[in-house]
Design a binder for these strands. Structure first.
Length: 187
DNA sequence: AGCACGATGCTCT
DNA sequence: GAGCATCGTGCTT
């Protein structure tokens, strides 16, 4: 078994570096005796209170406090009344920043003796949380097997040439910050 | 295959 | 009370 659980040091770095390095890492979700496994394929970086696209640009509020927490924590919020967005807190404690997980691939549902690929599309930040049974109950917890949500490095290498960047989705209101190429995905 | 639009509820002003 | 880090449907090309 070459699988290695990723700890908080990985997230204690520049948000854009973390977002890029998360590509190819493996997301695990354990829920009710079922283990879900998927490869992260698309992320976005939200970095600091100056970033007008970042929720923390409004300062420390009940919702954004978790972004000031130690790296490796989970930030989840509800958007448009029905979709949960999954984020991981980055940077040292008290620096507000997070990576949004926008896409996964190769989603597997692993039962006791039965491994199968789920015939569902899992691109899109709202779809993946739905399929992985992720909701606000995980907000503010730390990434860890005990939590039921964690990341592992299984040695999947994404060649640099296959890593594409783009502007973040749905943040046109953020002016010049909307043009930052802080979205990363496997082409 | 590419729009436009509505669903639906939390968060902050 | 307005707006939102979305998605599926139902329409038009």
């Amino acid at each position: 078994m070459t699988s290695k659980i990723i700890g908080q040091d990985f997230f204690n770095r520049d948000t854009r570096t973390v977002a890029k390095d998360l590509l190819g890492k493996v997301l695990y979700r354990q829920y009710n005796n079922t283990l879900y496994r998927a490869i992260i394929t698309e992320t976005e970086a939200y970095h600091g209170k100056e970033d007008l696209a970042c929720h923390c640009s409004k300062g420390k509020t009940p919702r954004t406090t978790v972004m000031y927490d130690a790296p490796g924590h989970i930030y989840i919020y509800l958007i448009y009344g029905m979709y949960y967005m999954l984020n991981f807190v980055t940077m040292p404690k008290d620096f507000p920043a997070a990576v949004l997980i926008r896409g996964i691939s190769n989603l597997q549902k692993i039962d006791i003796e039965d491994t199968k690929n789920l015939p569902v599309k899992t691109d899109g930040p709202g779809k993946l949380t739905k399929h992985l049974k992720i909701d606000k109950s995980l907000n503010k917890l730390a990434l860890h097997p005990d939590t039921g949500l964690w990341i592992a490095n299984e040695g999947i290498i994404i060649p640099k040439k296959q890593i594409a960047t783009g502007t973040r989705i749905g943040v046109a209101y953020a002016k010049v910050w909307a043009e930052k190429p802080w979205r990363y995905y496997i082409s």
